[in-house]
């Protein structure tokens, strides 16, 4: 911008076009129920009436069976590492500093994993099958967001057999 006059003589080859659209987003019923649970410090999954698998976060239906899920199941704060990655680049808008661990976590009682941050351990010690628990932020900070869980951290329990991760179902 130092030399406006010189720049003004250059032909236009590129332009900046702001395209900002305003929406009023309403969460789906399943998501709203799940996030309302999270707001109250609870992880609520939904059980498929057909295959009996428990989904978290619930999406309103069991994608395998194509049927609506209604039955709510409160899940444990404990979970198992199904897999993970050590991330060396920052998440936009997230204060956590790299390198940090993002893990696929299966909460006890659920049959599917979700991604969350794993901390309070050396990154190189993280392994598939490791047992962890949710560390919730102070209740005063709870909102309709998974960030209510600050991160998951290891607990002193033996690793789960890989074949069992996400496979355990209640009768």
């Amino acid at each position: 911008m130092s030399d406006q006059n010189t720049e003004a003589l250059e032909p236009i080859t590129g332009i900046e076009v702001p395209v900002y659209l305003d929406y009023n987003f309403t969460a789906g019923r399943a998501t709203a129920r799940f996030l309302t649970g999270v707001k109250n410090g609870k992880l609520l999954g939904q059980r498929c009436p057909s295959c009996r698998n428990v989904y978290i976060p619930p999406r309103g239906c069991c994608a395998a069976c194509g049927v609506a899920t209604e039955e709510e199941v409160e899940l444990s704060n404990k979970a198992t590492v199904e897999s993970f990655t050590i991330v060396h680049i920052p998440i936009p808008g997230n204060p956590i500093k790299p390198p940090y661990v993002i893990a696929n976590l299966v909460p006890d009682g659920a049959n599917i994993s979700f991604l969350h941050v794993l901390s309070e351990c050396k990154n190189e010690d993280v392994r598939i099958g490791m047992r962890v628990e949710a560390l919730w932020k102070d209740a005063s900070e709870w909102d309709y967001a998974m960030e209510n869980i600050q991160y998951f951290r290891p607990i002193d329990e033996p690793d789960m057999e890989v074949e069992e991760i996400g496979r355990l179902k209640d009768a």
Binding site: T26, A27, G28, R29, A30, T31, R59, G60, C61, A68
Partner: peptide
């Protein structure tokens, strides 16, 4: 449709 998401509209 308020709190019905796409899946809930389609199903």
């Amino acid at each position: 449709a308020g709190a019905q998401n796409e899946v809930e509209l389609i199903m």
